[in-house]
Amino acid sequence: MKIRICIIAAVFALVAVGSGQALAASPTLDSIKSRGALKCGITTALAGFAFADKRGVWRGFDVDFCRALAAALGVKVKFIPTNAKERFPALQSGEVDVLFRNTTWTLSRDTRLGFDFAGVNYYDGQGFMVRKDSGIKSAKDLDGATVCVNAGTTTELNLGDYFRSNGMKYKAVVYETGTEVRQAYEAGRCDVHTTDASGLAAQRSAMKVPGDHIILPEIISKEPLGPAVRHGDNEWGDIVRWVLNAIIIAEEKGLTQGNVSRMAISTKDPEVQRLLGKTGSVGDDLGLDPDWALKAIRKIGNYGEVFERNIGKKTPLALARGLNQLWSKGGILYAPPVR
């Protein structure tokens, strides 16, 4: 058994060596390199995840992942804001190279729509928000409510499923952007605002009086949010996947924005050595520089740092790590090994 695996591995290694650079020939990567910039699709505005600050600089959780990816490639990054309806045509048409945009990994998006998901950077679920003075305490009390929701999302589909299966009636009012949904809800067009729970926290923090609104306890769906790329360019998908994994592994291994440069020289951990390009050829295998992961981590830090800086307890969103804690600490964040 073991011998068989060894033989297969050896064959693969031989093939890899034999074909050399040809292994990582990605049209997307090529065009990014020749352009000198990564085009990263983000939301039009979602506090904590992707928003332009007063000076017009994009900030947020998803934005950081874009920056890390660009750093790993050694290029600049261009942010392309897209609303829920625009995001898929934008990716399909090549207007963006990758979507880091609260996009749920679903079967039909993986197949019919022609995308690949390179992993999950935020495990989420759909929730409901209502006005505090409405007296609603549970999603089961929402029979007959008017609900504001984004067009073209998993959210509007889950909403239908939930009310249907609970035998409740509702009226959906559908808008194109998250901002429109928030404004409509805030103005009283709807009783309920529904989207991913993280999105709800973000939207609430952007309201006039955030304290006037509460998020109901029910989570009605699984929303694994992750980076999406076009189907058919597997090498590019691999790069996105492993940059994301590198950020997660960095937290497992205690690498931070501050210490990663030092660790790159001093570490004795063989996996960290491989990751940071001290030994092995993972960078080469991906078609990147040997210090790709080092550059990515130096840019944004590890997963925990990114989380706390943008959406963690000390920010207006005040999200708990929850599922997005490392597997070793009770969450389900689990990156495959670098080997």
Binding site: L113, G114, E156, D161, K171, A172, V174, H231, G232
Partner: peptide, 23 residues
Amino acid sequence: NLTKRGIASGFSFLNIESGFAIS
């Protein structure tokens, strides 16, 4: 482009259940 990216085509999708509400 469609085949390379595996994007579905044809009109059979018209019979698929939509799952979303129209106001």
